[in-house]
Simulated assay, not measured.
Amino acid sequence: MTNSITKLFNIKYPIIQAGMIWNSGWRLASASSNSGILGLIGAGSMYPNVLREHIQKCKKATDKPFGVNVPLLYPNIEEIMDIIVEEDVKIVFTSAGNPKTWTKWLQDKGITVVHVVSSVKFALKAQDAGVDAVVAEGFEAGGHNGRDETTTLTLIPMVREQIEIPLIAAGGIATGKAMLACMILGADGVQVGSRFVASEESSAHQAFKEVVVDAKEGATQLTLKELAPVRLIKNKFYNEIQELYKTAPTPEQLKELLGRARAKRGMFEGDLDDGELEIGQIAGLIHDIKPVAEIVGTMLSEYNDAIKDINSKNFSF
């Protein structure tokens, strides 16, 4: 399978393992890259020295390409970028900020830059900033999300219509059938997050992985739009947010309830009651915890079977 995405990253299959906070350490990234897709280390939950350690361990665990996902609002962003250059990382996915700030700086150092967006407007801004590709992430995605609530099914063709650079679809993708659907809609590749949370190599707490596997339709909800929209599993902390909303809270009151390190408590430390449990709507289709290689293999088999199924039906009008 060769296309613009496999060529851009020098990978075998056009699948990217999302760089998720508290889930995407060096074990997940290296296992993903070793499976023929692009693995990403999630820098958003790492201090600079921790990121350097994960990059170094990832380089020892794989000789395949891998990258780092960097939220541009990161407080130590200059130090993070310097570490990426010093450690000779060749692929950076940026998010949560203006791509113009760092794209050219990174590219001048031989780094491929991809920016994550949630709308056509920001996809065009990313293209104007000179990024090598964009990830268009639909409303179904876990974690922090777009404010417009545009679903992947509608976002991908709208972005494809407006941009010329390679397009990666994200949000609600955990199967080969979903991958094929996104490719038909105009994507050149897909980024998968939630499915890899429930992998053996994910750095998420085992208790969180099991909650993801047990999740059913309607188990998640987008909330905290006044701060930064985030999709959460409905637990005790989520219910406390909803109770506070009944009082028409100010952003400051929401921040006070949120506090600090909620995501770490939930996803990394396994506090299923008071932690922030970020996952996508597709959790309802995730039924087991598997090794990354098996997850990738299943997706590819489903993708090929879906193509055969379509061809066998001989749809023509």
Rank of each mutant, 00 (worst) to 15 (best):
106 L>R: 10
127 Q>D: 05
150 T>A: 13
123 A>W: 05
111 I>S: 01
149 E>H: 13
127 Q>C: 04
194 S>E: 13
164 E>G: 07
201 E>S: 02
158 M>P: 05
116 V>I: 15
118 S>C: 11
156 I>G: 00
190 V>K: 01
127 Q>H: 02
195 R>D: 04
107 Q>C: 11
172 G>D: 07
195 R>A: 13
179 M>E: 09
144 H>E: 06
200 E>T: 09
131 V>T: 10
163 I>R: 01
165 I>L: 15
128 D>E: 14
108 D>T: 09
153 L>G: 01
170 A>R: 03
197 V>I: 15
161 E>P: 03
195 R>W: 08
173 I>L: 08
107 Q>P: 13
120 V>I: 10
173 I>H: 04
145 N>C: 09
166 P>V: 10
111 I>D: 01
164 E>T: 14
183 M>F: 12
111 I>C: 04
176 G>L: 06
157 P>T: 13
188 D>E: 14
151 T>H: 14
199 S>G: 02
106 L>I: 09
184 I>L: 13
140 E>P: 02
197 V>K: 00
153 L>S: 12
143 G>L: 02
179 M>W: 15
177 K>H: 11
189 G>S: 11
184 I>T: 14
118 S>R: 02
193 G>T: 12
111 I>R: 03
124 L>C: 08
172 G>Y: 03
117 V>S: 01
130 G>F: 06
118 S>G: 14
168 I>K: 00
126 A>Y: 03
135 V>H: 02
